[in-house]
Design a protein around this nucleic acid. Sequence first.
DNA 1: GAAGGTATCAACAGGGTGTCGAGTCGTGTC
DNA 2: GACACGACTCGACACCCTGTTGATACCTTC
Lengths: 213, 213
Amino acid sequence: MAASSPSARASRGRRAPRATGDDRERAILATLEELLEDRPLHAISVDDLARGAGISRPSFYFYFASKEAVLLSLFDRILAEGRAGQGDAIERLADDPPAQLRQGILAFFETFRAHRAVTLAGAEARTTSAELRAMWSRVMEAWVDEVATAISSERARGAAPSGVAARDLATALVCMNERVLHTTFAGDSPSVGEDDVVDVLVAIWLRAIYGDA
Amino acid sequence: MAASSPSARASRGRRAPRATGDDRERAILATLEELLEDRPLHAISVDDLARGAGISRPSFYFYFASKEAVLLSLFDRILAEGRAGQGDAIERLADDPPAQLRQGILAFFETFRAHRAVTLAGAEARTTSAELRAMWSRVMEAWVDEVATAISSERARGAAPSGVAARDLATALVCMNERVLHTTFAGDSPSVGEDDVVDVLVAIWLRAIYGDA
DNA sequence: GAAGGTATCAACAGGGTGTCGAGTCGTGTC
DNA sequence: GACACGACTCGACACCCTGTTGATACCTTC
């Protein structure tokens, strides 16, 4: 339940003249992404999305169950993109800690910066939508797992000193990234500038994991 | 505009028989705090608050402009309490870094844990209410200022190595605390246990500020 | 040319918000 | 002891938003 395959819409005559079906779906997605550029999710109604896509409000519900569902779909694509750009930077931490760490954090930073409006809306909708909350959790957990594993092996090979539990350390660092990037993208008042934020995060990660450097 | 003095309600005959005035106000505040114990802010309506306080919905608006305003008032008290418990731990960082840091972080932890429902609701309402967002910002800024100053003097006296800008470091660390404590209190999935969270945060702060320890 | 999935929307039901205006009830004043 | 006034209350209203229903139109495909 709640997977993300909007491509269950099969069988359309090749080169269909004026396809309507998932053009509309795309239009809705595009409309949300566009509207989010200049107002927050809670200020956008289903009617706004429907109008933007050139359909009536009831028709909207033919395509999506709610505006959160639209966001979920948008978000899914971004996450896929993020996973792609991230690669195995963290797994190869040992190769060159500062560089690999920077690479991993930079991937996140760039992905979310490229879609900051959707990212911020996702954070907002987490409070309302259980589905979005679950998706977010899954992503964070995966990231924490990966980091915790990397920390453990750095400790095992003697490159990193021991200290608090690797998983707890990983969780705190990942949470930090989430929140720090959020404030930076949202531009709210205590926040780190976009040009410095990656450096700052990398510096803290290095010190937290390796002690001095 | 938007200060927090609900005590503008003066002149009431001494020992008034069945005082109604700010008893109601207190009742509304108490009702919100109580209802927040078992459902999130967005699932509580003005009507719920009014009924809980034994008045009609329109009467509610005599006391508060919105449910966010009630939360704002509740939040204000908690912050005052927090400021009190926190003391000057950070200013005296140099006396005994691990102990002072722990003290400062612990104060935050305990204050917010004691009112976790209100705290979580505050985070939720930030997306909706500009006033709450502003209040939250002010608190974070004050905390960042204090930490940034402390880091700078530790660096000046040679106790801490230099590195990324003190203010950026302070911002990231404070953001980390905010988010980590939030996930811990909310109990959502990647989170640090309540028993360990202070240790983990202190460990990261120490490493981030002082390098090894 | 009938069947069946695809797609559309007017109209409705329901719940939330915030406001208005008419009222009640004490209290201090002359 | 009438009266005015501020504190307080609420029924009724205007609005906005959500999500559903049922009638309908449009393709295709056989």
